[in-house]
Structure formats: structure tokens, C-alpha cells
Design a protein around this nucleic acid. Structure first.
Lengths: 233, 233
DNA sequence: TGTACATCAGTGAACGCGCGTTCACTGATGTAC
DNA sequence: TGTACATCAGTGAACGCGCGTTCACTGATGTAC
């Protein structure tokens, strides 16, 4: 089957095109991703790329789903590799490290959405899987639902929930979209949600350069936020 | 001075152009803002707009600084209008309400930065002013530096700082960029910073539509986060 | 109040540019006998 | 091992489009005497 070589070469070319597209993304944003420019950078003419992607939109979609998958895998791996007591911190740091390493990809999925562009349903599934990973990491931290390793975590004692945090927990009780399999309690879901938004808050502002010129080290802030999450549940 | 009428008309036209630009921003993003299209929507030809703006970039810059100023004023006003004990919540809610009312403007200043575009130094000053407003709101909440109204806040008792939160406070001690006038302590600055990133975390994900399909009400999450901030300092 | 001049707003044509995408075509690489 | 055919990769020309910006020009609106 010499056709296998062709197939391999095809895949290779697609990957190269996507790599170039990411470079363009970094340099001039989503709008700067251009089929013709990618082709030129690869040493071929524009129309040639249509052998590999049906349209610019398809390329963009693939860029996004690839990124989602990459990040989801990275988080899952970090959680899997860490001892239960370290899972939460490992997950949080893996998220930040990934984002700092490839800020443009982070913003591709968690930045300003491209108006009129609709992400494929596939991404919703991956996002749900990521939520599941965060829930796992949260449950390992100890507290109400974290029976798994309770006692094993030697961290600071957990604080009781605020009234409104309890209300959030009740509110989330019936939400089941992003958690396949056995359903965790509302409190755990609330913790996962807070984790997500807080980490995103620090990471996104950092990655967007909003901290530049302020004269402090964002990683210190990030570590403090991890600490607060561990303590506050 | 009949020239005053001309001047007034000029200002009016500029404002109309910016309004149309904001509509385009909402519909097709930053890249969709087009001088020619704006002019057409206003019933004139493209080049005519060059009587009012030196370039597309100048228009964009003005859009951004206007937005910064508007938000900064809104926050300051909310803080000024509220009783000391309510200041923190009032500020937080004003931020979210503003963002929900005009999501595109929020993302214009706190979303993915336009690559290659450099905001004018003026925005940094306004941002510093906003930081000052947040510091004010935080100091009214009670706690170490909040001598102003300590005792007046009937909320839940403040928690002591985590070890890493204390480290953040020490780290911020020397930072003086975003706080003109008398220098608040590192602990207060840490609280303000946390406030900013946490509120932004919820608001930005909400405004970007990342919560859609998850089946919960973002405002419940937001209120819970306010509560956690009040409690945790 | 009326005239001569200056200032301004807006037009229409034109510039060079890059975009996504189509199409007919050339070579090279594969498969079948 | 060699030939006939099919499949594929890539080219170059062309499409219509919209972009930011310039330029010379026309009218209208202002000011000065």
C-alpha cells in the first residue's frame, strides 16, 4: 500500500498548515488567519490548500477543537499523575502553565468569541469533560463531598459555606449537563464552578497583558487564589 | 458665533459615527468596524468620515477610551451613591450590570486584545483610577485596613488570611502604580486585586456565552462570589 | 443689508491591496493487468 | 518488468468583493468689510 505514504503526507501537510495558522493567530489575531497567506508560508499557492481543507471555516474549526482537546487532555493528565492530595493544585497549575505557554490558543477558546462563528457541538462535549476533570480535582480537596481522600489532605481546615454559597449549591443541584456519569452534589458543583471562574479570572487578565506595568508577579496572585479555593471549598 | 452651531454639529456627527461603530462591533467584532460601512450607514460616502477622524485607528482608540471612561465613571458613581456598608456590593453589581448591558464594550477593553494595537497611555490612567475605586470599595468592607467603617458592616465575620494570601499582601506592599494619593496597605491591595480578577472571571465567561447551555443562572454564582469576597477579605 | 472672500462638509473617482473561492489544466504518483 | 489507466497534488488565471486612504473638486455655510 504505497497509498499509506500519501495518507501520511496528507496528514503532515494538514498539521503544518494548522501550525502556520497558529503562528498567524499569534501575530494578528483570528481575523489575520488567511488561507492564501498560510499557503504562501508553506511554499505553495493559495488554492492548493483547498485539497486539505474545504474552507477557511473548517480550518478554524479544527484549530479550535484541537485546542480544546489538547487542553482537556493536559488537565486530565495532570490530575491523573498527581497524588490525590495534590490533585487540585496540580490541575490549577497545569491550566495556568498551559495558558502561559500558548496564550493565543487559550484566548482562541476562552477569549472574545468570533461573532457569527458557531463552535461545533463537539466542543461542548469536550468542555463538559473538562468540567468533569475540575470536579474530580475539587472532590480530592476534601470537604462535604470529598469522601474519597478526606483526612489524607493535610491542608488548612475547610470553611463552612456562606449563605449565598449554599444557595448556589442548591441552585446547581438540578444541573446535570456538564457532568456525565454519577451526579456530584450541588456543593461540589459550586466549588468546581468557582474554581473555573476564579482561575480564569487571573489567567485571562494575565494572558491579555492587563497586569503589565502594575509591578507585581501574577503567579503570586495565582497561588494565593489556589490557596483561597482550597480553604474556602 | 454661528460657528458654534458648526462645532456642535461636528461633535454630533462624531458621536453618531462612534455609535454606528459600536453597532458594527457588536455584530462582527473589532475587525468588522469599517470606515466605509460606517459612512454608508450614516448616509454619506466613505471619505467624508476623514473630516471627523484622522484614521480608522483614531476612531478605534476613541471608542476604547470612551468605554474606559464610561465604565470608570459608572463604578465611581455606584460607590459614591451607596452607603459605606453597601459600597462593595454596589460596586460589584454596577460592574456586572454595566457589562451585561453592553457586553461588546466590556470585551472591547477586557477581551482579547487586538494584536499590534497599542492602547494610548490615557487608558492606563483611567484603569488606575478604576483600581482606586475598587480599593475604596474594598476598604469599606471591613477588615485590617478598613478602619473607615469597621463595626458598621453587619456582614459575616472576616476570615484570617491564608499564608499565601499574606505573602501576596507582602508582595504587593511595594506596588504603587495603580494607587495615586495615600498608599493603602498590601493586604488591601491584595483584596482589591482578588476582587477584580474574581468578578472578571464570572463576568467575562458569562458575557462570552461560555455558560450557555449549562442550565444555571450566572447571577446566583455572581452573588455567591460577592459573598465569598466579603467574607474572605 | 449686501458683497467678496475664506472655511468647511461632502462627493466621486481612483490607488493598491488582500481576501476566499472556482476552474481548467499539468505532472507526478499510485494501481491493475 | 512493462504498459495503460486512474487518482491525486499543485499551479496560474480569474471572479467579485471590501478594505483604508488620497485627491481634486463642488456647494454650502460662515466671516469681514
Amino acid at each position: 500500500m504505497a497509498t499509506a505514504r500519501r495518507e501520511r503526507y496528507r496528514k503532515q501537510t494538514r498539521e503544518e498548515a494548522k501550525a502556520v495558522a497558529l503562528a498567524q493567530l499569534a501575530e494578528s489575531g483570528t481575523a489575520g488567519i488567511s488561507v492564501n497567506a498560510i499557503a504562501k508560508a508553506m511554499g505553495m499557492t493559495g488554492p492548493a490548500l483547498y485539497r486539505y481543507f474545504a474552507s477557511r471555516d473548517e480550518l478554524l474549526t479544527e484549530l479550535i477543537t484541537d485546542t480544546y482537546r489538547d487542553l482537556a487532555e493536559t488537565l486530565a493528565q495532570a490530575v491523573a499523575d498527581a497524588a490525590p492530595a495534590d490533585r487540585f493544585r496540580a490541575m490549577a497549575r497545569a491550566l495556568r502553565d498551559w495558558a502561559k505557554r500558548q496564550p493565543d490558543r487559550y484566548l482562541l477558546i476562552y477569549g472574545t468569541p468570533v461573532p457569527g462563528y458557531h463552535a461545533p457541538p463537539e466542543t461542548a462535549e469536550i468542555a463538559a469533560g473538562m468540567m468533569r476533570t475540575i470536579v474530580d480535582a475539587c472532590s480530592a480537596v476534601g470537604g462535604a463531598d470529598g469522601a474519597t481522600v478526606r483526612g489524607a489532605t493535610a491542608g488548612p481546615e475547610q470553611q463552612p459555606l456562606t449563605e449565598l454559597e449554599a444557595e448556589l449549591a442548591r441552585h446547581l443541584e438540578g444541573v446535570r449537563s456538564w457532568v456525565p456519569g454519577e451526579e456530584p452534589g450541588g456543593e461540589l458543583k459550586g466549588r468546581a464552578l468557582r474554581t473555573w471562574t476564579r482561575l480564569h479570572g487571573v489567567i485571562s487578565l494575565d494572558v491579555q497583558g492587563q497586569f503589565t506595568g502594575m509591578g507585581f508577579d501574577p503567579s503570586v496572585l495565582f497561588e494565593a487564589e489556589i490557596d483561597a479555593l482550597v480553604r474556602g471549598g
